[in-house]
Design a binder for these strands. Structure first.
Lengths: 262, 262
DNA sequence: TATTTCTTCTTTCAATGGCCAGCAAGGCAA
DNA sequence: TTGCCTTGCTGGCCATTGAAAGAAGAAATA
């Protein structure tokens, strides 16, 4: 493993867990604790973390994402499954919003065979993916391009979204927790996803199983704010009860689900 | 195996694995590590990768992933020259608008070394080109994506442009005629370029020599509506007189031009 | 509170291995 | 042939890593 990979992974862990422990990382990556400390030192110097006794915590005001890419599309198979499920819910003529996430790109790939769709997105990658379909109406939010992420954020983008109302919004998040709800790594993304949810009749949360029981940085909304949660694995009993209590439908591959949900 | 073949294979591996390791590649291709390093150096110089200790990681956002878009890009050398001239007019801290044209992409490439630039554009290709610069403010107009062109048009885009005022707007056109002025192939593009011109103090028209004495479909504006015309060849006497009469400066490679124009 | 004990941190040193520059050999086209 | 490009090699340099030892911090106990 390249050193830079390790540091990226540490940063990723830092963003989902908000803190890391030297001894754990040393064990996980099978390198000495000194090496981990040096990694954390570097992350601190770059403004991503604050070292503490025994580990490090994420620097709150740093809304920077992964600096040197390698945002490795983790769990591609799972995201494909999610995209397929969501694809089966989209009907010809639908108007949808797609956020900037890898899952959104998979969803875009999956619905290219539909007719006469209107898509509103803040993701440049989704735009490129859909550039060659014909007969669709593809709208971009515009706004400020977030450094290193090929996505638009900011007031301009939110304002544009709020002038529309669509049938379905498909959003994702970095962490899902029964109490804290949906959380994401940056304030600006969270705000934008919130706006998308507010602008749609059916609010679909696309979230792969690795995000369950994680809490990220900023709150997007509570679980009952969405209409439906689409994931790639059957959730635990505990989570099923949570979804039941919150009045949210959870869809996963292999389940039998009612047609009217579509 | 040819060197270029090897480099292509490395690039492929880079795109699937997101990273490559020098020692592995050296073994796989049965060449020395020095050769691999030189390959990676080249890939880095071409913008596909970022070298790190022990290997390299992919540089996402590189326009390598652009789909189809078989833009035939005529007169590349000429457009490069135009881009270079325009690049020399941009100063650190400038705020500029760039339209959706191949020349605009070349301009974007040419000014990446500047500091603290604000760019407003309706071109997805320009956005991608600039995705990896840091410290800039990159704004997208948003709006409707024009089918088959990776650019935004429409009311939304124009409205966004008109809420800003910048120092320089760089626009192009499909035809230039002494009487009909600047013309373009589509109403929506013409309208948008007009808005860009109205929103800038210095209006720079980038137009290669093949567009002279051509008339396209819709009028963008008259020749005297722009401040400066940048082209790739010295215009004829007739055209020089036109520019003189209209009070427009014409800049081309090899001419001696006053510093205050910059 | 003071003291002890355990953990973690910092500093220093050495080893490993990758990196770079320069050189020379071979291949290829003009 | 000459010139240019690619490749491999060498030697010095530098980045990364781990070990060790002492300092500093946290926690537990008296």
């Amino acid at each position: 493993m390249l050193a830079i990979e390790r540091r990226n992974k540490i940063l990723e862990k830092l963003q989902t867990d908000k803190k890391v422990v030297v001894s754990e990382l040393s064990h996980d990556f099978d390198v000495s604790e000194e090496t981990i400390r040096r990694d954390l030192e570097k992350l601190e110097k770059d403004g991503y973390a604050t070292k503490t006794y025994g580990g490090a915590v994420i620097k709150e005001n740093s809304n920077a994402e992964l600096p040197f890419v390698v945002r490795k599309n983790t769990n591609v198979a799972g995201k494909q499954q999610i995209a397929k499920l969501i694809g089966s819910m989209i009907r010809d003529g639908d108007q949808i919003m797609l956020d900037a996430s890898s899952t959104a790109v998979f969803v875009a790939q999956n619905i290219k065979n539909k007719k006469n769709i209107t898509v509103i997105t803040n993701s440049v990658e989704v735009l490129i993916e859909l550039a060659d379909v014909s007969g669709w109406k593809i709208l971009s939010t515009g706004g400020t391009m977030r450094e290193g992420s090929l996505a638009f954020v900011g007031h301009q983008a939110e304002k544009m979204l709020s002038t529309f109302h669509v049938g379905k919004a498909i959003v994702s998040c970095k962490g899902l927790d029964p109490v804290r709800g949906l959380t994401d790594a940056s304030e600006s993304f969270a705000q934008l996803k919130k706006t998308m949810i507010d602008s749609a009749s059916k609010k679909i949360l696309a979230v792969d199983s690795s995000k369950f029981d994680k809490i990220s940085f900023t709150e997007i909304g509570k679980i009952h704010d969405v209409t439906m949660i689409v994931t790639d694995k059957e959730p635990s009993e505990k989570w099923k009860q949570v979804f039941n209590a919150e009045g949210v439908v959870c869809v996963y591959p292999g389940m039998t689900w009612k047609t009217e949900l579509q």
